[in-house]
Structures are given as structure tokens and as C-alpha cells.
Amino acid sequence: MTTTIPLWDHAAPYAAKGHEDEMPHLIPFIQPGSESAVIICPGGGYGFLADHEGAPIAELLNRAGISAFVLKYRVAPHRHPAPMTDGQRAIRYVRAHAEQYGIHPSKIAVLGFSAGGHLTATLGTLYDEGQPDHEDPIERESSRPDRVILCYPVITMESYGHAGSRENLLGPDVSAEQIKAFSAEQQVKADAPEAFIWHTSDDQAVPVENSLRYALALGAHGIPYDLHVFEKGSHGLGLAEDDHAVRAWSDLCLTWLKNQGW
């Protein structure tokens, strides 16, 4: 039986009407001896969560000696700020329980695919240091990920982003302020985490410009990144085990993590 970790002991905040009982949670894949962890955010356009972008990725990380957690965050009909709140809570939870899992509190990365990549990029740009006087010790922890891994991510809410993800997250009537606030390439700060990014140049669902512009934004702030663009490959490939060229992304990513001390 798979273990699940509810992110709250009570009802989650910002619940959609009629869906108050939906509890975001983590599924742990703890690798004994690992001092680092990766929180995985599957994609699905903020409308569902793709199974092939969850557990198989955690198992890959385990084989490389890294602990992982798959995040089951809320999607439509839940809207912002529910997904971001779930992601921030997940980072705070793992950090607060780092000693229990044998994880160093400064070795917590987040990895996301597609819309989960947007959530990951949002977590890497809109973070806080926690509330030191909060009655809940989890809320005292920082929500900043130490590294981010973006897999064919939705980055922007502008025209070259993904309309379905934008509507599911923000609703049909989106203001210019919301578009800017949730276009991660426009929110990169000088202390944003380093990133590993990959995409395919002919992605018809989420254009490669999403990844390119995020990399440029990191570069403008002097933040290191490792960017890989493969010539061909459809959207939503996950591990891409049937694509000889694109499946190399996972080895490249694991090498990058190793070089980061993961």
C-alpha cells in the first residue's frame, strides 16, 4: 500500500466550492542514505495529473541514490492560489521533516513537467522565508527550492504559453497584472535557484520559447542554468524511453544533480 502524507492536518486552504475534501498530499520515495530530495510535480495543464510524470520519475531518482516525493497538488476546478500554496507547503513540509528523512534542509529541489513545470518555475520565483512566529512549525520554514528542474515547462501566461493551463489556473478573465505575475520569466530574482531545463524544438503544445525565455531571464541575473533543446519530440514524453535521442535528458539531469552535490 502506497504511503501518502497529507500536507495539512485539517482542510486545505483555498478549496474550490464542492471540493473542500480534496487533500493535496505527498507520496514519499525515500532512498536510504540520501541527503537530498526532489519534489516532483506532474503535468496535466492544471486540469489533471499525468501518472507517467510522477512515480516513474521518483523511481529513477531512487536508482540514482536520491530521495523523492511526488506532489499531488490541486487542479481545476481549484484555481490560484491553491496549486502554488500546495507546492510551497510541500517544500516547507520536507524541509521541516528533513532530519526525519535524513535529508539536508538545503538540498531540496523541485522537478516539474509541462504545467507542473509552470508550478515549479513559480515556486522558484515566488517564494518566501516563512513566518518565524507561526504556530504551525511547518509554516516557519522557507518555501524556496534549492534547485529547479523544468521539463518542457509552461513558463509564461502570455501568447506563447499554454492557453488551457492559463485558464485552468487563473480563469477565463485574466488581467494584465495576473499575466505578468504568473509569467515566471518576468519574476526571476537575483537569488532564484539554479535550473536544469529541457524541451524539444518542435513541441506543438508548449513552444520551446517558454524554456528559452526562462533561461535568458536566469542569465540576465547571472544565475547558472543547464539548458538542453532536442530537435524532435512531442509534448508530454516523460522519461521518453521510446525516443533514443530525447531519453538522454534523464542522464544529463542526473549528472547535473550530482555536480550540484545531490
Rank of each mutant, 00 (worst) to 15 (best):
M1D: 13
I5H: 01
P6A: 09
W8K: 06
D9R: 09
H10G: 05
Y14A: 14
K17C: 12
D21N: 15
H25P: 03
L26G: 07
I30D: 05
S36I: 00
G44E: 14
A50H: 11
G54E: 03
G54F: 02
A55R: 07
A55G: 05
I57E: 03
A58G: 09
L61Q: 01
L61T: 05
S67A: 11
A68R: 00
K72G: 03
R74A: 03
R79Y: 03
R79I: 13
H80I: 09
T85D: 08
D86R: 10
G87L: 02
A90S: 12
Y93I: 03
V94M: 12
H97C: 03
Y101L: 13
G102K: 09
I103Q: 13
P105A: 13
S106T: 11
K107I: 03
A109F: 08
V110W: 10
L111D: 04
F113Y: 15
A115I: 12
T120Q: 07
T122P: 00
T122A: 09
D128F: 05
E129T: 10
P132E: 10
D133E: 10
D136H: 07
D146Y: 07
R147G: 00
R147T: 01
V148T: 08
V148S: 03
C151A: 10
Y152Q: 13
Y152G: 00
M157N: 11
G164M: 09
S165F: 12
L169V: 08
A176W: 08
A176E: 15
I179G: 04
A181Q: 14
Q187F: 04
V188S: 01
V188T: 05
F196S: 02
T200I: 06
T200S: 07
S201Q: 14
S201E: 14
Q204Y: 11
N210D: 15
N210V: 12
Y214Q: 06
P224C: 01
P224Q: 02
L227F: 06
L227H: 00
L227V: 12
L239F: 00
D243G: 03
S250W: 02
L254A: 01
K258M: 00
G261V: 04
W262G: 00
